[in-house]
């Protein structure tokens, strides 16, 4: 399990990174945290001509929590988000989710943006991106563009990103302070990829729900936002029965895949149960 030969190219600036990606014309991969890419290399399931290392680019590091958005640079590690208590206070769903990504050594190295670019349908960050309507900034030699999460994921481990593009940052608009959010997932063991994960955001006014968002991971080739279930919640009074109904709607809306860890029937059931549970936690957290 030794990686195949590749050329290692350390980028010295974002512009340089895009030039390198252009130079290899689609046959280079961006190396950030490497926690998904390097196993693929070690298994020889990926064989790029070059790796463009962006870890040295200070301008892509760090995160910034604003009043109504969270800005995360391309080499910001999961652990940095996990250890910021203000993020947990401002948007608990993010803290719920990030704590469930792999293990500490993985979170120390793996990056938020790398996880999004890898686009594993069971992963937390792609789901959070969908839940919060994140915006990605992608750069190529030709220029920069912004891609909305809803238009980004186009299949299993597949996105609309061109291989010559690099995501430089992601911005997560944050739900209002008075909202409640939660991320709940079910995995075989601690730290495993979830069989199913559900993220929920609820806003209430005058004891009824004014806005609700539900995203489910692990049930399709991309994370799925379930509008039909959100509609059930709009204008209704929060409560167990309502959340259970939303769960039932989710179960009718998803068409999960089967694998050795759980078949479609089971995943659909999980989606239903976890939706109800996530909504309950989110509602509880709503002011």
């Amino acid at each position: 399990m030794k990686a195949p030969r590749f050329e290692y190219r350390a980028a010295t600036s974002v512009a340089h990174a895009t030039e390198l990606l252009a130079e290899y014309d689609g046959d280079a991969k961006v190396l950030a945290g490497g926690q998904s890419l390097v196993p693929l290399l070690n298994f020889r399931l990926s064989n790029p001509a070059a790796l463009v290392d962006i870890n040295g680019l200070g301008e892509l590091g760090g995160h910034r929590l604003g009043a109504d958005e969270l800005h995360v640079g391309a080499v910001c590690r999961h652990r940095e988000i996990e250890r910021d208590p203000q993020i947990a206070a401002r948007c608990p769903a993010i803290a719920d989710a990030v704590a469930q990504i792999g293990h500490v050594a993985i979170r120390n190295r793996g990056t938020v943006v790398g996880s999004i670019a890898h686009a594993d349908p069971a992963a937390e960050w792609p789901g959070l991106a969908m839940l919060l309507d994140a915006q990605f900034t992608a750069r190529a030699v030709q220029g920069e563009r912004t891609i909305a999460a809803g238009a980004f994921f186009d299949g299993f481990l597949s996105t609309v990103l061109d291989p010559t593009e690099v995501i430089t940052a992601v911005t997560f608009p944050l739900p209002p302070v008075a909202s409640g959010s939660a991320w709940i997932e079910f995995a075989r063991r601690h730290g495993d990829f979830a069989l199913v994960g559900v993220g929920a955001v609820i806003e209430c006014a005058d004891e009824s729900i004014t806005s609700a968002r539900i995203v489910v991971t692990g049930v399709s080739d991309t994370p799925v936002r379930v509008a039909a279930a959100e509609r059930v919640l709009h204008g209704a009074q929060p409560g167990e029965a309502l959340f259970a109904e939303a769960g039932r709607v989710v179960a009718t809306q998803v068409d999960p895949i089967s694998d050795i860890h759980g078949d479609a029937t089971y995943r659909r059931r999980l989606a239903q149960v976890l939706t109800r549970r996530a909504l309950a936690v989110a509602a509880d957290r709503a002011a």
């Binding site: 399990m1 990686a3 290692y8 350390a10 190396l31 490497g34 926690q35 390097v38 196993p39 070690n42 298994f43 790796l51 290392d53 870890n55 652990r79 293990h103 500490v104 050594a105 993985i106 120390n108 190295r109």
Partner: peptide, 25 residues
């Protein structure tokens, strides 16, 4: 492949999988 943790080292004081990091990094 980054699961077992036997290759854990500290990089600038933080635990990392040394099997998922290239020496050049």
């Amino acid at each position: 492949h980054g699961v077992c943790g036997a290759c854990t080292v500290l990089l600038d004081g933080s635990s990392v999988r040394s099997c998922l990091l290239f020496a050049v990094q």
